[in-house]
Design a binder for these strands. Structure first.
Lengths: 355, 355
DNA sequence: ATGAAAGCGCTAACAT
DNA sequence: ATGTTAGCGCTTTCAT
């Protein structure tokens, strides 16, 4: 005769609760122990009002005794909600994205979402793969970060049945909800400031001009400031490079050779490489060269001299993006589609007094 | 009469495929379209050999036409595998942990796992909460990083039915699989080196002595080197602080006041704060003060002078930990429980020649 | 206030 | 080689 032991009996038989891994109890076990139906247990777990206080207590007690934890996967299948969101980003080890991620994570946890994280190294193919994978995992929403909204990525997102919010990533077509600073404004302001210092040659160091954020935003702001004082963009002062310390070190002499006496840089890692090149070649900053960076990560405080920077509320960009996503996942309307958070210019040691 | 349209008919009726979001096809839809059973479709999706080539092709074709993507949640419920792992870590914005995370992520993706990420800010309570949450999401394994394996965390992990690997986190009790450098050795070596330079007072700056990694590893290595030359630890030269730039700036004068002429620091953010304090107070490094840091993140290259550092193979620690986890999830045995990856000492500008 | 029962989309025996 | 069927653990109508 086959004897089937239930968990409790088994534990007693073994004598020591700690020897046996707890065999995860199901909602069924809880219902059985209390003598109610699954539905009732489900109701108390989900905070449904329609449960008598006395039974609710009994259920809660049983849950505690059994160490019952709802199985989120089963719940997800039944409810079609996974309480999980996905992040698609270039690289966690880039401080800028790491800070955005932190903001996203904190707000996500606040709303009891877990976060699936994927690094795609700015590769559009991997972006698409990542989004598809997240979709198959039934995430309730996605936050997309990255330099560029590639055509394929856009199509993939359009075909999705779940909301997507861009963070630190512009949508030139203004279709997807996004959170950023006003890049045009920021680059306009800082260029204008530098121009007022009397520079003839202000270099702009950014990412690929194939990307809208460089072409239509950073460069646009820079151009606007130049045009305003009746000047044209000199292509010799435009430089593009990836977010790589070593590669930028190689670019540095070219920037210097361009005759620039001031430079505006789009990423802190790049700016620090430039700074260190100048430092190691005994340049006087800001005397011989003024330098402004863009993201105000720890790098700009840690470097010597400290970097003057366009400051983005990085954590907040992530946090606000996630907050917007929760609304979308809740089918609420958004007040604004393209949120622009305020930026500032933090004056440090690589520029003269800015105004 | 009610007419129920299938997706295809609907799309044709609408006329433009792009107007309608694709209603996710199920395995059932695929089976129907081909005229086979669910099981057959499931087999081709899962690469089961028992399918005739011709039917396999037909199924593949239908999958393509329908844009079918398996529902990972349903699959997870049925198979009891989520192909998802969890990471519990202090803070993504700390470069050290970010690099480990990157290593974990890359190997995870290589094995087709997705990664759920939680920041717990070194709070044991949040560690436990995070682990429980991951468990309810049915992750197949967990990688735990952090300063300390708190008692509660340990109990929670012990009660788990899924494998856990520690990365950049020591288990003083040697029970859980882990990947680290040999901290004792590393701190012994660097202390001995500095002692050979003739220093009377070598300060050690680390995290809380309540944590085993500081007490039993970093301090132990330091002590060993001192003892070896017949000296005792002077408590006045021991400093503890969190990984915070500003707070360390406040600690800096105390370290200087201790009379130390050399210091060994456990974290790069902390080391950079100390360095900048010294720099801003016109100390000559390494002339008046030698300084060694521990993690060899970007900070040590970016700072001026560049920091001499104990170098950890951070990415590899993450990668190896994840590789071990895949084995455990696959019920394979581990050759070693406590893997120690080789460290090096990278000589830069804050120390004299090391030997 | 509570229960019964039908799925959610899939995997995995088992049968053929 | 393919189909049938019974779950996986839960939510959610619909009854009562």
């Amino acid at each position: 005769m086959l004897i089937i032991l239930d968990e409790e009996t088994l534990l007693k038989a073994v004598g020591d609760r700690n020897v046996v891994k707890k065999q995860n109890a199901t909602i069924y076990d809880v219902a059985n122990r209390v003598g109610v139906s699954l539905a009732t247990v489900s109701r108390v777990v989900n905070g449904n009002k329609n449960v008598r206080d006395s039974t609710k207590e009994k259920v809660l007690k049983a849950i505690d005794e059994l160490g019952y934890q709802p199985n989120a996967v089963a719940r997800g299948l039944a409810s079609k909600k996974s309480t999980t969101i996905g992040i698609v980003m270039p690289d966690v080890t880039n401080l800028y994205y790491a800070e955005l991620t932190r903001g996203i994570n904190d707000v996500a946890n606040m709303y009891h979402y877990d976060v699936l994280l994927t690094n795609t190294d700015d590769d559009p193919v991997r972006d698409v793969l990542a989004i598809n994978s997240l979709e198959s995992k039934q995430v309730d929403g996605i936050i997309f970060m990255g330099n560029e909204l590639d055509q394929g990525v856009r199509k993939t997102i359009d075909a999705l049945n779940i909301p997507v919010v861009l963070a630190g990533c512009v949508d030139a077509q203004q279709k997807l909800p996004s959170v950023n600073i006003d890049y045009i404004d920021a680059f306009y302001e800082i260029t204008a400031s530098l121009l007022r210092h009397g520079h003839e040659n202000v270099a702009l160091v950014m990412g690929s001009l194939d990307e809208a954020i460089n072409r239509d935003y950073r460069l646009a702001g820079y151009t606007k400031a130049l045009n305003e004082v009746g000047r044209q963009v000199d292509e010799k002062l435009l430089f593009t490079t990836g977010r790589d310390y070593q590669k930028t070190l190689e670019l540095a002499p070219k920037v210097v050779a361009s005759g620039a006496t001031a430079m505006i840089v789009y990423d802190d890692v790049v700016a620090v490489a430039l700074l260190n090149y100048l430092h190691d070649h005994h340049f006087d900053l800001p005397g011989q060269m003024e330098l402004v960076t863009s993201n105000d990560t720890n790098y700009s405080i840690i470097s010597r001299p400290q970097l003057t920077s366009i400051a983005q509320p990085k954590y907040d960009i992530g946090a606000v993006a996630m907050r917007m996503l929760t609304k979308l996942m809740n089918n609420e309307d958004l007040k604004e589609q393209a949120v622009k958070l305020p930026h500032t210019i933090v004056q440090r040691q690589t520029t003269h007094e800015l105004n």
